[in-house]
């Protein structure tokens, strides 16, 4: 193992919790038109595993927004870099995030999706870092609460590395 990494959530813990979330969501979305919206790129791993544990019909789509600090956008405003292909009007939408911390980007995303008139709009995040929250956003389903540490794995990266880890680890900087 990379000596900069300290395992926080094992593959088994992660897998078990994702299944639990899948059961909860399946119960809540019976007889509804569930659309999972995975926020690229980090949440893909979680969204795929979550979708496999669902026992209700659903469709899945992907959305991506620019991030503050990216070279091309550092002086502008947030924009959608990959939009949905499906129409979510009158659908029961569940936004799937890998990690929710400041709430800044999710706040924008929810405002944007609301304008498309979904029937319901909820949020499921794999990791939740409440201590970093700046603006309040609703969290309907969450996998794990984390303290203010920098983590990688299970879709989360550091300079595009470590996304493929099947566990979640704290990345300890030099």
């Amino acid at each position: 193992m990379d000596n900069k990494l300290k395992v926080i959530l094992s593959r088994e813990e992660t897998s078990a919790r994702v299944k639990e979330l899948g059961e909860m969501i399946s119960n809540d979305y019976r007889k509804k038109e569930l659309v999972l919206i995975s926020v690229l790129r980090g949440s893909v791993f979680f969204a795929v595993d979550l979708s496999r544990s669902l026992t209700v019909p659903f469709s899945i789509d992907f959305i991506s927004i620019s991030r503050y600090g990216e070279k091309t956008d550092s002086t502008g405003v947030v924009r959608i870099t990959k939009d949905l292909d499906v129409n979510i009007a009158d659908k029961d939408v569940l936004v799937v995030e890998d990690i929710l911390d400041t709430g800044l980007s999710l706040s924008y995303l929810l405002r944007n999706l609301k304008t498309r008139n979904p029937k319901t709009l909820k949020v499921c995040t794999f990791l939740n870092v409440e201590s970093r929250r700046i603006v309040n956003v609703p969290v309907d389903y969450k996998g794990f609460d984390l303290p203010d540490i920098f983590v990688v794995g299970y879709g989360l990266d550091y300079n595009e590395k470590y996304r493929n880890l099947q566990y979640v680890a704290e990345y300890i900087k030099d």
Binding site: Y68, V77, V78, L104, S107, Y108, V135
Partner: peptide, 9 residues
Amino acid sequence: AKMLDFYRI
């Protein structure tokens, strides 16, 4: 402030 502007808050 720039972060807030970026996310249209």
